[in-house]
Amino acid sequence: MTYKLISNGKTLKGETTTEAVDAATAEKVFKQYANDNGVDGEWTYDDATKTFTVTE
């Protein structure tokens, strides 16, 4: 399945996607992506749209 990340960081804003077997796997990928880009904030997940959002 395709999962989307919306980043509302102070230094990184935008969207990216990943293919993953489940939401937990996608979350690990996205949290590593955010960490690699210096984004640390509040996370939410919408199962209906398969979208994670991180806001700093």
Score class of each variant (00 low, 15 high):
residue 1 M to L: 10
residue 1 M to Y: 15
residue 1 M to R: 12
residue 1 M to F: 15
residue 2 T to Y: 08
residue 2 T to L: 13
residue 2 T to Q: 10
residue 3 Y to Q: 04
residue 3 Y to D: 04
residue 3 Y to W: 05
residue 3 Y to E: 04
residue 4 K to H: 13
residue 5 L to K: 02
residue 5 L to M: 08
residue 5 L to F: 08
residue 6 I to E: 05
residue 6 I to L: 08
residue 6 I to K: 07
residue 6 I to Q: 06
residue 8 N to K: 12
residue 8 N to T: 11
residue 8 N to Y: 14
residue 9 G to F: 12
residue 9 G to E: 04
residue 10 K to P: 15
residue 10 K to T: 13
residue 10 K to C: 15
residue 10 K to V: 12
residue 10 K to F: 11
residue 10 K to S: 11
residue 11 T to S: 11
residue 11 T to F: 13
residue 11 T to Q: 10
residue 11 T to C: 15
residue 12 L to S: 09
residue 12 L to E: 06
residue 12 L to Y: 12
residue 12 L to A: 07
residue 12 L to D: 05
residue 12 L to M: 10
residue 13 K to G: 07
residue 13 K to L: 12
residue 13 K to F: 11
residue 13 K to I: 12
residue 13 K to Y: 11
residue 14 G to P: 11
residue 15 E to C: 15
residue 15 E to A: 08
residue 15 E to Q: 10
residue 15 E to G: 07
residue 15 E to F: 13
residue 15 E to T: 12
residue 16 T to K: 11
residue 16 T to Y: 15
residue 16 T to F: 15
residue 16 T to R: 11
residue 17 T to V: 10
residue 17 T to L: 10
residue 17 T to S: 10
residue 17 T to Y: 14
residue 17 T to R: 07
residue 17 T to A: 07
residue 18 T to V: 14
residue 18 T to H: 06
residue 18 T to D: 01
residue 19 E to M: 14
residue 19 E to L: 14
residue 19 E to V: 15
residue 19 E to N: 13
residue 19 E to R: 14
residue 19 E to C: 15
residue 20 A to S: 06
residue 20 A to C: 09
residue 21 V to D: 10
residue 21 V to W: 12
residue 22 D to Q: 02
residue 22 D to Y: 02
residue 23 A to K: 13
residue 23 A to G: 04
residue 23 A to Y: 12
residue 24 A to D: 09
residue 24 A to H: 09
residue 24 A to I: 11
residue 24 A to K: 11
residue 24 A to G: 07
residue 24 A to W: 08
residue 25 T to Q: 11
residue 25 T to H: 11
residue 25 T to K: 06
residue 25 T to Y: 07
residue 25 T to W: 07
residue 26 A to G: 01
residue 26 A to D: 00
residue 26 A to T: 00
residue 26 A to Q: 00
residue 27 E to L: 15
residue 28 K to G: 06
residue 28 K to L: 10
residue 28 K to D: 05
residue 29 V to R: 10
residue 29 V to Q: 08
residue 29 V to W: 15
residue 29 V to F: 15
residue 29 V to G: 03
residue 29 V to M: 10
residue 29 V to P: 00
residue 30 F to C: 00
residue 30 F to L: 05
residue 30 F to I: 01
residue 30 F to R: 01
residue 31 K to R: 15
residue 31 K to N: 03
residue 31 K to Q: 07
residue 32 Q to H: 06
residue 32 Q to Y: 04
residue 32 Q to E: 09
residue 33 Y to E: 02
residue 33 Y to P: 01
residue 33 Y to V: 06
residue 33 Y to Q: 03
residue 33 Y to F: 11
residue 34 A to E: 02
residue 34 A to L: 11
residue 35 N to Y: 15
residue 35 N to G: 10
residue 35 N to L: 15
residue 35 N to W: 14
residue 35 N to K: 15
residue 36 D to E: 13
residue 36 D to K: 09
residue 36 D to H: 08
residue 36 D to W: 07
residue 36 D to L: 12
residue 36 D to S: 10
residue 37 N to L: 13
residue 37 N to M: 14
residue 37 N to D: 03
residue 38 G to M: 06
residue 38 G to D: 07
residue 38 G to T: 03
residue 38 G to P: 01
residue 38 G to H: 08
residue 39 V to C: 06
residue 40 D to G: 08
residue 40 D to A: 12
residue 41 G to C: 02
residue 41 G to F: 04
residue 41 G to V: 03
residue 41 G to R: 02
residue 42 E to K: 10
residue 42 E to F: 13
residue 42 E to Y: 13
residue 42 E to N: 09
residue 42 E to S: 10
residue 43 W to A: 01
residue 43 W to G: 00
residue 43 W to V: 01
residue 43 W to R: 00
residue 44 T to A: 09
residue 44 T to S: 13
residue 44 T to K: 09
residue 44 T to N: 07
residue 45 Y to T: 00
residue 45 Y to W: 03
residue 45 Y to N: 00
residue 45 Y to M: 00
residue 45 Y to S: 00
residue 45 Y to P: 00
residue 46 D to M: 03
residue 46 D to T: 04
residue 46 D to W: 03
residue 47 D to Q: 09
residue 47 D to V: 09
residue 47 D to P: 14
residue 47 D to A: 13
residue 48 A to L: 13
residue 48 A to I: 11
residue 48 A to R: 11
residue 48 A to P: 06
residue 48 A to Y: 10
residue 49 T to C: 04
residue 49 T to H: 05
residue 49 T to Q: 06
residue 49 T to W: 03
residue 49 T to Y: 05
residue 49 T to S: 09
residue 50 K to M: 10
residue 50 K to Y: 08
residue 50 K to T: 03
residue 50 K to S: 05
residue 51 T to L: 03
residue 51 T to G: 01
residue 51 T to H: 02
residue 51 T to I: 06
residue 51 T to K: 02
residue 52 F to A: 01
residue 52 F to S: 00
residue 52 F to E: 01
residue 53 T to V: 07
residue 53 T to C: 07
residue 53 T to I: 09
residue 54 V to A: 02
residue 54 V to Q: 01
residue 54 V to Y: 04
residue 55 T to A: 06
residue 55 T to H: 09
residue 55 T to N: 09
residue 55 T to I: 10
residue 56 E to H: 07
residue 56 E to C: 07
residue 56 E to P: 10
residue 56 E to N: 07
